[in-house]
Amino acid sequence: MSELKKIDRRDFMRGAAAAGFVGATWAASGEKTEGTVWQLDPSKCTQCGRCATHCVLPTSAVKCLNQFNICGYCDLCFGYLQPGSRNRDTGAENQLCPTAAIKRTYIEAPYYEYLIDEDRCIGCAKCVNACMVFGNASFYLQIRQDICINCNECSIAKACPSDSFSEVPASKPYIYLTGDESTTKP
């Protein structure tokens, strides 16, 4: 039976330092990979509603955005109003959003501006679907990176029926409809 060689603390520290040096050298010489974050592609989204129900956060990190250079500023906005609503006003019974997260502001006859209150938005895409069917499709969903905890395996991505989710470079974390952040601002 061979006798096991005892390793003292000094030998152990030397070995660890050598391994650390080799590892650091290998990492430095290799191709640098940029960090990624989860994001959804609005062109693939089918507004299934799972962004609202399948996020691990209490309120989903997915929020609705309005692309203002596409929005028609309609009085009869189907992203805002229930289909068949009696009046075109801010009455709760007339609003489509289940959390009243869309703010309607009069601009001039007959145009209105629609802003999303993201604290209220649950990312259900009900307004996105309505705007797509009846309007200009200016509403769309995006993951808000300041809310998302960037899970290793995004639970919404796993449930998404249209494979809209992917990891994108953290330096370009949003996919705007017209490719420009400024157009999401009024």
């Binding site: 507004q47 299934c48 509603g49 799972r50 609202a52 129900t53 399948h54 289909p83 068949g84 489509l96 289940p98 649950i122 259900c124 895409a125 009900k126 679907n129 309505a130 069917v133 639970s155 796993k158 449930a159």
Partner: peptide
């Protein structure tokens, strides 16, 4: 099972009646 509830009628847009 995912453990998540599927979206209900309140958050589905449905104009099939129209």
């Amino acid at each position: 099972q995912s453990g998540f509830q599927e979206p209900g009628d309140q958050i589905r847009y449905d104009v099939s009646s129209f």
